[in-house]
Simulated assay, not measured.
Amino acid sequence: MAMATALLILLLATPAAVLAVDYTVGDTSGWTQGVDYTTWVSGKTFSVGDVLVFVYGGNHKVDEVNKSGYDSCSTSNPIQSFSDGNTRINLTTSGVKYFTCPTAGHCSSGMKLAVTVTGTPNTPSGTPPTTPSGTPPSGSNTPSTNTSPPPPPPSNNGAGNTNNLMFVTISVALGVMFAFMG
């Protein structure tokens, strides 16, 4: 019985863990000059638990800065600096996060990114967030009626198919639970 209880707890905890999304900044272009990061951000919902993945060459870096540093392209006092070429930044708190490339002239030519992070994990693909009444929250981009098809699911940019992972986890947990009970 203890094993079944432990598996049930694992089963209940797993969906929250698989909802995080890895976003490759700039998609296939990566973190480089010539990408419109304002357009790249539009239509995406960043949530606590998601990860920003910056992929870049040796002449670029990533600095996390405050709003003033972002607006002025000043990296004299960065919050964090990265130069490994494959930087993963876990979004652990809600609010607006600002990033720039500190290489001279890169930020001023558009190599900067601002993302707004919500305090709730992303919902599974294709499922709009809802209020307790079952309606989308105010300000949601989701239509309030079911007369139109749902929007396409957001790209997970290599995060894997969370629905398949959840299905496998549930199937294994149930199989083990029934094996011990039966």
Rank of each mutant, 00 (worst) to 15 (best):
M1S: 10
A4F: 04
A6K: 05
L8S: 11
L10W: 15
L11C: 08
T14G: 09
A16E: 10
A17M: 12
A20I: 09
V21Y: 00
D22S: 05
V35M: 02
V41A: 07
G43F: 03
G43Y: 06
V48N: 07
D50P: 02
D50Y: 02
V51G: 01
V55E: 07
V55H: 10
N59M: 07
D63Y: 06
S68N: 15
S68H: 05
D71Q: 06
S72K: 05
C73L: 12
S76I: 05
N77F: 02
N77T: 14
I79R: 04
I79G: 15
Q80P: 07
D84S: 12
N86P: 04
R88D: 15
I89C: 02
S94M: 12
G95K: 07
K97S: 07
Y98R: 14
C101V: 12
C101M: 04
P102D: 02
A104N: 02
V115T: 09
T118S: 03
G119K: 07
T120L: 12
G126T: 05
P128Y: 14
T135K: 13
S140R: 08
P143R: 03
P143T: 01
T145N: 14
S148Q: 11
P150R: 07
P154E: 13
P154W: 01
N156L: 08
G158T: 15
N164Y: 10
L165G: 08
L165W: 05
V168W: 11
T169Y: 13
I170V: 13
V172E: 14
A173V: 15
L174Y: 04
G175H: 00
F180V: 08
G182M: 09
